[in-house]
Amino acid sequence: MSGLSPRQWTGLALLAALAIALPFAFEPRGYGIRILCLALLFAAMAQAWNIVAGLANQISLGHAAFFGIGAYTSTLLLIHFGITPWLGMFAAAILGGAAALLISLPTMRLRGHYFALATLAFGEVMRVIGNSWGGLTGGPVGISVPFAQPSLALMQFRETRSSYWLMLAALVVVTLVFVAIKRSRLGYRLRAIKENADAAEVIGVDTTRTKIIAAVISGALTAALGTLYAQFQFFFDPDTVFGVASVSVRMAMIAIVGGIGTAAGPILGALFVIPLEEFANQVFSAQAAGLSQLVFGLLLILVILIEPRGFMAIGPRLQRLLRKGDRR
């Protein structure tokens, strides 16, 4: 971030201090801090998704595949071989990256809706495999992370705030990766593809290969975050970690609501969407079946109708409005 002014640096430092200190404002084992943890995790996931979708405009609806692979990889390694999730997370990333490579080879030649549908199918295939291959995954019954004495070595914590800091660190890492890619040669290639694939091709960009590299990075990061999710929830089943609505679409939606292709977009999006979802659940779920989802859905539709480019576009829009006001 060489382009930041001293004032922006100060702002960023204050924001960091606030983010680190925030858990002390919450009840240590309460509900609020758990929601915050999930919001940070989903922000990181949406940021990983943003690498391919935001920079190259390849909208994946199958990222749950990588997320689930990550959750199962580290958990199975822990259960069967006693391998710490810290290492399991790297194994998860490797498998997630490999899966992304595999699915990208045939699908990255596709654009737009065709790519979205192909990836959607891939996620669903993984969910079905997860449910059917009971011998490995435990099937639809789900799988539990063995509970041990809380210890950093096993990525299990007594205080939820330790999980919070872990999620925060993960978000920072994924965001730095996103920013580094965006400013690199790879980032320029991806943006060229997004804006005009044919023009990118004739100036010498190997478009398919470029998209595959980004997809592998994105898939690996998403799988590593799957490990964090497993260690945070202690229990999951194929329908949650490989779910279309619970993971794939939610990742995409968060990034889009916040501002696709920007570094801050997924963070703003997650801090809005995840608490909103919980709030809708709390207030409306007692009233009538499905009402909370309806309210949540309507609010999201409203946001996208007001500003299709997400929260990140609202600032510049306000500035323009103010400037117009000045001229008058």
Binding site: Y188, R191, A192, E195, N196, D198, A199, E201, V202, I203, G204, V205, D206, T207
Partner: peptide
Amino acid sequence: PSHVIPALGIAHVPEGRHVFPEMTVEE
């Protein structure tokens, strides 16, 4: 493959101009 051709010394200006609209002129 198309992406190796520019390096050989052939530049193509496609029909319809095809600039990258959201990038600056310099970029």
